[in-house]
């Protein structure tokens, strides 16, 4: 842009043509009258500008390791879909599903109670009772849940389920390490998943199928992520092994259903784990963040100080 039409000298606050060289140096102050025009640009202009102060260079292998959280969740969603397909085609016995699910919940409880309980809040003794009441209620409700969306055509159900699972993957809380509650946006992800399960349950043949499927869904989407976060915190190697296991299970389960999806999935996992980190490191060179004295200051306050009375 051409701004040369503003003549710098025409702005002089007081004309002093006889001594232009003896001007006092310009100071960045407003309370003194200075012999400079108001639009004067000093050499110090923008000298407090800082660029990319929060720059954090990533380590490639650390990024690869962190990306397993995403791989894990996508795998678990796909495993769930595969389980549904097997149930739908009656290749999987719902009894087996219920007993497997219960066994894992029980195992999880034992691990929580005896091995991991130290940094976490101790589990309430009545947990098993609560769980029993919960699953019995679910059993009682399963005829209603199964017929709730029966009137909707299968095509709509498939399409909506896909959208809801995508919502689940997008909103899942990957970053936090909360192990005893679910917060926004994780709650959105859980709700989307449960909604998808209710929709899918209506396509199953018997009430027992529906019950087995729903109970598995709740274990899988509500409890399993908590276990995964916990494992990642206390045993990184175990977490890595778990990821590999989940990827393998997904591949094995999907191979008979659709080879194309199984292969596509493996490619996706590979690029997510090994190519996306390179990409992230690469695009960091375009980072351009400006900071300066005009930024809103962050107040430093000692919180958590109990009021003295």
């Amino acid at each position: 842009m051409n701004f040369s039409h503003i003549d710098l000298l025409s702005f002089k606050s007081s004309p002093s043509p006889q001594k232009p060289l003896t001007l006092a140096p310009w100071r960045k102050l407003l309370y003194i009258k200075q012999e400079y025009p108001d639009n004067y640009v000093d050499e110090s202009f923008l000298e407090n500008l800082q660029k990319n102060v929060n720059f954090q260079s990533f380590d490639y292998f650390a990024l690869c390791r962190e990306s397993t959280v995403i791989t894990e969740h996508i795998s678990s969603v796909l495993i769930f879909v595969a389980v549904f397909i097997q149930l739908y085609h009656d290749h999987l016995d719902p009894h087996l599903l219920v007993s497997l699910g219960s066994a894992f919940v029980f195992l999880g409880c034992i691990i929580w109670e005896w091995c991991l309980a130290r940094p976490a809040p101790p589990m309430h003794k009545s947990f098993l009772k609560t769980a029993a009441v919960f699953f019995l209620t679910l059993l009682g409700l399963s005829p209603i849940l199964r017929t709730l969306t029966q009137g909707i055509s299968s095509d709509s159900i498939w399409a909506m389920s896909v959208c809801l699972f995508i919502t689940n993957i997008l909103f899942f809380d990957y970053s936090s390490d909360l192990t005893y509650s679910i917060q926004f946006p994780g709650s959105v992800a859980l709700n989307a998943a449960v909604f998808a399960c209710v929709l899918l349950a209506s396509r199953l043949s018997t009430n027992l199928h529906a019950f087995g499927f729903m109970s598995f869904a709740l274990e899988w989407f509500a409890l399993f992520p908590i276990f995964r976060r916990y494992l990642k915190r206390i045993m990184p190697t175990g977490h890595l092994i778990q990821t590999l296991l989940l990827v393998a299970i997904t591949f094995v389960l999907f191979w008979p259903i659709s080879r194309a999806i199984a292969v596509l999935y493996m490619i996706a996992v590979f690029s997510l784990t090994f190519i996306c980190p390179i990409w992230l490191i690469f695009i960091q060179r375009y980072k351009n963040e400006i900071h300066g004295p005009w930024d809103e200051a962050r107040p430093k306050v000692h919180r958590f100080r109990s009021p003295q009375r």
């Binding site: 503003i6 407003l30 923008l46 300066g292 004295p293």
Partner: peptide, 28 residues
Amino acid sequence: HVICVSHTSKENTVLRAALNPLNVSAIP
């Protein structure tokens, strides 16, 4: 022309609106 109420404000406005600093005056 643009007027800013302080020199810091001038720097800020010049960056925000991609202006020529000669076209911006600081008048408190």
